[in-house]
Design a binder for these strands. Structure first.
Length: 596
RNA sequence: GGAGGCGUAGCGAAGCUGGUUAUCGCGCCGGCCUGUCAAGCCGGAGAUCGCGGGUUCGAUGCCCGUCGCUUCCGCCA
């Protein structure tokens, strides 16, 4: 039989089409046989349409309809008819009509499914990944992949209109020493040499600035050989942008405008633009994170003023060692938080390196429970100082500054979820600015770049940063949305002398720098313009817009947590011939050797 | 590398302190059914309870080990 090509999709028929003869192509989503009358829901990416086989249909047709199982791919010819008034389904776009079938063609049958195709499956992730092509048929996944398309479309639309050029950069590049672990690609033509897959197009976009393409962007695939997380995969996609002759404010403005356009176009949401800015120090001190979720407040307070007058030795020694003691007042939580629940909060803190979590409750008499006996004589001062009221729970964290911030920050996040303080409909953007340029590595006793080596120190540190790297802030910024780092960028160094001074601070020998990215340094000597940029994670953005907590939900074919694909079983062994071509020998780790 | 959680039919789950013919829903197979839209009703098949060892008269359940998945820490400029 000649193929019955569709004349309409499964999502478009309404009462207006009554009487028309149509052909639909799609998948059998549901099949309800009532003995006499028979309903089939036919589905494609546009929607669902109800097909009816009536009592008086030909026997052969009825039999064929009865043989249709889940996910058979079929073509159906029939006549659009209005449903009887009482049979209209208001939950269906096509609920006003049904198609009375005249002809059914089975385009392909379908085995018994490993899991049902439902709006949101509850099947296990391994099965979903193994049969990803089936999982992607679900409405939830289709919606998210379509959302992802709409997001990248809106981004391109906005940036093109803003005079940006979309330019591709190589994915076979030179391995660079800093940052994450590189994926390496062996060279066949050059024995023993390797390409690396880019962790980002960083160096190339800077070179494009030197070339005069003053507004660049790319939807760039990036690769980092590190352990996965809910918001991290081996490969992921960035909107990578770079601009010449710009200040931080210019970059913020274009990014804010882009986000506004994306949310308006793909979700119909009007974002309040001109995002809030918080310094890194404030973000850490107040929320215990460089990516704070500001959909709820509950900021930390400094508890150090109350430490000296108390006999509680733990906090005293923390302060003497240069650490911090922070207080988190949880309004009205005293009654709900038993010792057991507080211990659970403490466990959360401990995973972030805290030794413990002190607490006390505010009562009519003063302070009660936990460490209150050490502080009751200061009860009034503490309560007024922290603005704590009767019924509040006060959590106290004393540790080295960063540990104190991070661990209490984790407690804050958990409380935000547990106490349902988070408005799920909110998109709360915040710029984190004034990041430190360098971090001290206690183990190596060296200074390291906090982000990367190409970021500009802020002007006030330009003279002195080599001598005293600790306090130096860079023109570095992150864009944070609902507690996720969404974008990160900086104003770059375009002066080779300045760049060399940075290398010196982080103990990067001149010869190594020349060897690794001499080409970039050399380009700076040919009239490189001042420039800066930002890169935004597409997967995370779409994930948040879709209300999900894993980027696997918005990536068509993701890897699992172990960095493998259950569908195609990659990574996989290769033939000895291939290895020989690439001049490679495999040396198995000891443990695996025994198993071989 | 480390910590927590999970592992019972194709899928999702139940199985309390050790003794069941291992339960339920979806799916699958067969039958009935004229208006459903997660259709309904009746019947049936389908499980070495992740794997190995131990304790016990007896283990899905307790203990040890191991594997897998998952979330997090480390890592991710």
């Amino acid at each position: 039989m000649e193929q019955m090509k569709r004349t309409v999709t499964c999502g478009q028929l309404t009462a207006k089409n009554e009487g028309q003869t149509v052909i639909l192509n799609g998948w059998v989503h549901r099949n309800r046989d009532h003995g006499g009358i028979h309903f089939i829901n036919l589905r494609d990416r546009y929607g669902e349409t109800q097909i009816v086989v009536d009592e008086d249909a030909a026997e052969a047709l009825k039999e064929k309809a009865g043989s249709l199982k889940f996910e058979y791919c079929v073509a159906i010819e029939g006549i659009v008819r209005a449903r009887p008034e009482s049979m209209i389904n208001p939950d269906m776009v096509t609920g006003e009509i049904e198609v009375s079938v005249k002809n059914i063609s089975i385009l392909n049958s379908c085995k018994t499914l490993p899991f049902m195709i439902e709006d949101e499956t509850d099947s296990n992730e391994t099965a979903r990944l193994k049969y990803r092509y089936l999982d992607l048929r679900s409405k939830g996944m289709q919606d998210r992949i379509i959302l992802r398309n709409n997001v990248t479309y809106a981004i391109r639309e906005y940036l093109q209109k803003s005079s940006f050029l979309e330019i591709e950069t190589p994915t076979l590049i030179k391995s660079t020493p800093e940052g994450a672990r590189d994926f390496l690609v062996p060279s066949r033509l050059h024995a023993g040499k390797f390409f690396a897959l880019p962790q980002s197009p960083q160096l190339y976009k800077q070179l494009l600035m030197v070339s005069g393409f003053d507004k660049y962007f790319q939807v760039a695939r990036c690769y980092r050989d590190e352990d996965a997380r809910g918001d991290r995969q081996l490969e992921f996609t960035q909107i990578d942008m770079e601009m010449s002759f710009v200040s931080v404010d210019d970059i913020f403005k274009i990014t804010e405008g882009m986000m506004g356009h994306v949310f308006k176009k793909s979700l119909g949401v009007d974002l309040p633009l001109d995002f809030q800015r918080i310094s890194y120090d404030d973000a850490m001190n107040l929320y215990g994170s460089d990516k704070p979720d500001l959909r709820f407040d509950m900021a930390f307070q400094d508890f150090a003023p109350f430490v000296p007058a108390s006999s509680f030795g733990v906090f005293k020694s923390v302060l003497e060692a240069g650490g911090a003691v922070k207080a988190l007042v949880v309004p009205g939580a005293a009654a709900d938080y038993s010792r057991k629940k507080i211990t659970e909060l403490e466990e959360t803190a401990k995973t972030f390196g805290a030794k413990g979590l002190a607490w006390m409750k505010v009562t009519t008499e003063g302070l009660d429970g936990g460490v209150s006996k050490f502080y009751n004589d200061q009860a009034d001062a503490i309560c007024s100082g922290l603005e704590a009221k009767e019924g509040d729970l006060i959590l106290l964290m004393g540790a080295a500054w960063k540990t104190a911030c991070n661990s209490l920050g984790a407690v804050r996040s958990r409380l935000g979820k547990d106490l349902k303080l988070i408005d799920e409909n909110l998109y709360r953007f915040v710029w984190i600015v004034d990041f430190p340029l360098f971090e001290y590595n206690e183990d190596e006793k060296t200074w390291e770049p906090a982000h990367h080596m190409f970021s500009m120190p802020q002007e006030q540190y330009l003279e002195t940063f080599d001598k005293d790297p600790g306090p130096v802030k860079g023109d570095l910024y992150d864009l944070v949305l609902n507690g996720y780092e969404l974008a990160s960028g900086s104003i770059r160094i375009h002066d080779p002398e300045l760049q060399q001074r940075i290398f010196n601070v982080v103990g990067f020998p001149k010869e190594v720098a020349e060897e690794r990215f001499g080409f970039l340094l050399e380009s700076f000597r040919y009239g490189a313009p001042p420039h800066g940029g930002i890169a935004a994670g597409v997967d995370r953005l779409v994930m948040i817009m879709a209300g999900k907590e894993s980027i696997k939900e918005v990536i068509p074919f993701p890897k699992n947590n172990a960095g493998m694909s259950p569908m195609d079983d990659s990574p996989a062994w290769v033939d000895a011939d291939q290895l020989q071509d690439l001049h490679l020998n495999i040396i198995m780790p000891e443990v695996d050797k025994k198993e071989e």
